[in-house]
Design a protein around this nucleic acid. Structure first.
Length: 396
RNA sequence: GCGUCGGUGGCAGAGCGGUCAAUUGCACGAGACUGUAAAUCUCGCGCCCUUUGGGCUACGGGGGUUCGAAUCCCUCCCGGCGCA
């Protein structure tokens, strides 16, 4: 087995485990650093290693365009190409069906603040992604050219990119989509899941394929999806693990996750796609998730929003100009060990490149450190205490 | 000294009789960011009042012309350039 559960939390769905890949073992729960275009923006792989990152996630859609999966394949695969020795994974491009489709220029993200916040789109620009039964037609955001991704094509590209773990091609729906659309999209995503799995088996390689559970915010659909994706099992076997994708509001990030994880096979890893903020990760771990990826730590860092035990702070605020203390006193990261808020504030104001690097180091270390502590708490049997302590101190 | 061009909000720089408290950029202040079209985007940015509203002070100083001036005229001060 490629996944071993070491310890289950007695009071929740949480578990600590080990995921084996050809490029090393991953101790879970773990945060996967996002390297969309084969780079974690502003960091070298050595920096990633130093801050405890165990795995990196690239994106099929982006790598297909830049530099092209053929280049990555010829380079020896994603890890070799980007000089990352550890485990890698790629997203299928399914998220871009959402971000370039339903969400395109609508100010919608995968986490909706409130469901009443739906924007009416009288001035909507035509989306760059259009979904059909066959797949998703994208207009390249780079040059406008048209490209069709089908489940088969996505798997083929991911095979060429060569990450250790790849994902089924799915549709990430908008948090504002109707229940009826969620139902329709879910059925299609399930068909695509089977097609992805069949294609993957044909290619005969060592990659692990994760199926993706969708279903929006509807409990019935989420549970149906967990049963279907968890049970899809052609002659050559089912998925090697699961992604939990799609639309949420802040509050049901963890509730919907719980519905799903109660039903998914326990002996396979579960990756909560695109989540999240520290508080989300704490709650989702409690609800049985093993892996996470999210752009938030790195993007926030580049935008000057830094994590502390007390919540996020904006290093651009005037009050930090002469603050000669680290972002967080007890942080063990390179940035906090060597630089003051005043210096970081200066770098950001001066638009120096090092600003993004130092901030990214800190934010990623913060999130990774959080997952390390969560894992330790599960192994100790103190998860519930840890959670309460963390969330009380951390102001969203 | 003569001639000439110019002096606009923290800076640069539009405006050249009313729709100007004044385009725009930067700076400044704040906010957002969840499988990355993001080192990005949004909002604010003379003072005062609770307002989509109103009042006050403002475009080097002073004085005029006009119903009305940052915009026209006179004068003074200051700067660039040219000639002495």
């Amino acid at each position: 087995m490629h996944f071993t559960v070491e310890k289950r939390d007695s009071n929740s769905l949480a578990r600590a485990g080990i995921l084996k890949t050809p490029h090393g073992n991953i101790k879970t729960p773990a945060f996967v650093a996002v390297a969309t275009k084969a780079t974690v923006k502003s960091l070298t792989p050595e920096m990633l290693t130093e801050l405890g990152a165990q795995m990196v996630l690239g994106n099929t859609y982006h790598l297909y365009f830049e530099p092209g999966e053929g280049v990555v394949k010829a380079a020896g695969g994603l890890g070799k190409f980007m000089h990352w020795d550890g485990p890698t994974m790629t997203d299928s491009g399914g998220f871009q069906a959402f971000s370039l489709g339903a969400a395109y220029k609508k100010g919608v993200s995968k986490i909706a603040r409130e469901m009443t916040e739906v924007r009416l789109q009288s001035d909507a620009e035509p989306a760059l992604a259009v979904i059909t039964e066959d797949g998703v037609t994208f207009k390249s955001h780079l040059d406008g050219s048209e490209h069709l991704f089908t489940p088969e094509r996505s798997i083929q590209i991911q095979h060429d990119i060569g990450a250790d773990i790849i994902f089924a091609f799915d549709e990430c729906t908008s948090p504002h989509a109707s229940d009826s659309y969620q139902r329709e999209a879910l059925a299609r995503t399930h068909r695509w899941a089977t097609r992805s799995l069949v294609q993957h088996r044909m290619l005969d390689n060592a990659q692990l394929l994760f199926g993706i559970v969708q279903g929006g915010r509807v409990q019935e659909l989420r549970e149906e999806s967990a049963r279907v994706i968890g049970g899809i099992c052609p002659p050559a076997g089912g998925f090697d693990g699961f992604g939990i994708g799609g639309s949420f509001t802040k509050d049901d990030v963890h509730t919907a996750v719980g519905w799903v994880n109660t039903l998914l096979p326990e002996d396979k890893p579960r990756h909560l796609l695109g989540i999240g903020e520290p508080e989300d990760i704490v709650l989702a771990v409690e609800q049985g998730c093993d892996l996470f990826d999210c752009v938030t730590p790195t993007r926030n860092a580049r935008n000057g929003s830094l994590y502390t035990r007390e919540g996020k702070m904006n290093i651009g605020n005037a009050r930090y100009r002469k603050d000669f203390f680290p972002i967080q006193q007890d942080c063990d990261c390179y940035t906090c060990n060597n630089f003051t808020k005043s210096y970081l504030a200066h770098l950001f104001r001066a638009h120096e490149m090092l600003a993004g690097t130092l901030a990214t180091i800190h934010n990623l270390r913060f999130i990774i450190h959080l997952t390390e502590e969560l894992r330790a708490a599960i192994l100790d049997g103190t998860l519930s205490e840890y959670k309460n302590k963390f969330l009380t101190r951390y102001k969203k």
